[in-house]
């Protein structure tokens, strides 16, 4: 008991210290440890989520990149095919157009030639008619002085018959 007295042990102080420590423990647990640990967990989750998303994005990017390459390759092949098709089609079309135009040209030539012939015949006919009229007029003028009216008619009739007018 003397030792306890020397060290100043007092049950009231002892109880006060115990209660004091329990209060501090409660306050720190409630206002410090719990919020900090929750925050750390939240941050850890956010980091994990970020890393996970980053990984997902990286995989997606890689996938998209490979898909892009494949699509580009396909597009390139398709474009080449389209160009080749277009070239062959253009060649064919050009040939067709050439043939059509050749035929049309030939037809135009033929038509023109026919038309010219027709016109030439027409012209020839008109010229023959005109020349015949001139010739008859000329004959009439010439016959007036040399032959009688009866003879003139006879000669003109004969001349017209010869000229087939």
């Amino acid at each position: 008991m003397e030792i306890i007295k020397n060290f100043g042990l007092d049950p009231v102080f002892l109880a006060a210290q115990v209660i004091n420590f329990l209060i501090i423990l409660y306050v720190l647990k409630r206002f410090l440890y719990k919020p900090i640990l929750e925050l750390l967990k939240k941050r850890e989750d956010a980091i994990k989520e970020g890393v996970r998303k980053n990984e997902e994005v990286r995989i997606l990017l890689e996938k998209a990149s490979s898909e892009e390459k494949a699509v580009l390759k396909r597009a390139e092949a398709y474009a080449k095919k389209i160009i080749d098709d277009a070239k062959s089609h253009a060649t064919e079309t050009a040939k067709e157009i050439e043939e059509i135009s050749k035929k049309q040209t030939e037809k135009i030539f033929a038509d023109a030639s026919l038309q010219i012939k027709k016109e030439a015949i027409e012209t020839e006919k008109r010229l023959t008619l005109t020349v015949s009229k001139v010739a008859i007029e000329f004959l009439k003028k010439s016959l007036e002085q040399l032959f009688s009216e009866k003879e003139q008619k006879e000669i003109l009739k004969k001349a017209l018959k010869e000229m087939k007018i």
Partner: peptide, 12 residues
Amino acid sequence: SDLNVTLGLALV
């Protein structure tokens, strides 16, 4: 340096 405090802590 008060045994009441250290003993209180040890008891807790």
